[in-house]
């Protein structure tokens, strides 16, 4: 489509100038499924809205938690070379880092789990495929969160 094309659809060429301006505004189109007084109450609740908001809120917190984690584990004090059981024991001796890692585990797993749920919703079309992929995803997510939580709470520096 050339940039000089004008169509009646009201959609301008991709990334081109709009057909409308302040002096020539686009016609208002009524939402086809606008809710009225007669529309029955939605029975689905606001789960998708909550999930959308959670992705943004957890995302901001994760930027701080994960980049801090990367700095400590991969950059500062010799990078990855210093990591070992003794290093983990030293860090988890402090409740601060236990809470840090616990928060990072829960937020990252729920953020990633919801992200993959969206990906499955987008690409898996057959109901059976969706069911199995989501079942696998939820199982792996719950298992990983519980395992990680257990490890942080029951860590024993004197294990032999």
């Amino acid at each position: 489509m050339s940039t000089t094309d004008t169509t009646a659809s009201g959609i301008g060429p991709v990334e081109g100038d709009s057909l409308y301006s302040v002096d020539n505004p686009a016609p208002v189109i009524e939402p086809p499924r606008k809710r009225t007084k007669k529309t029955p109450k939605s029975t689905r609740g606001n789960f998708e809205l909550a999930a959308w908001l959670f992705m943004r809120l957890s995302g901001v917190v994760l930027v701080v938690l994960v980049i801090g984690h990367l700095l400590i584990q991969l950059v500062l004090d010799g990078g990855v070379s210093k990591i070992g059981f003794a290093f983990v024991a030293g860090r988890w001796a402090s409740p601060f880092w236990q809470v840090w890692d616990l928060a990072m585990l829960w937020l990252a797993m729920l953020h990633g789990g919801n992200g993959l749920r969206t990906v499955i919703n987008d690409y898996a079309e057959r109901p059976n495929t969706r069911l199995w992929l989501k079942g696998l995803l939820y199982t792996a997510t719950v298992f990983t969160i519980l395992l990680g939580t257990l490890v942080i709470f029951t860590f024993d520096p004197n294990i032999r």
């Binding site: 070992g84 789990g113 990680g148 860590f155």
Partner: peptide, 29 residues
């Protein structure tokens, strides 16, 4: 996002080895 999620899964599993033994953890690390 998908790549990070798969790494995270493996990373929690390898860290869980600190509950098995220091040697098991250090070998994998």
């Amino acid at each position: 996002g998908v790549l990070i999620f798969f790494f995270l899964f493996v990373h929690v599993l390898d860290t869980a080895l600190v509950r098995v033994s220091p040697e098991a953890y250090d070998t994998v690390v």
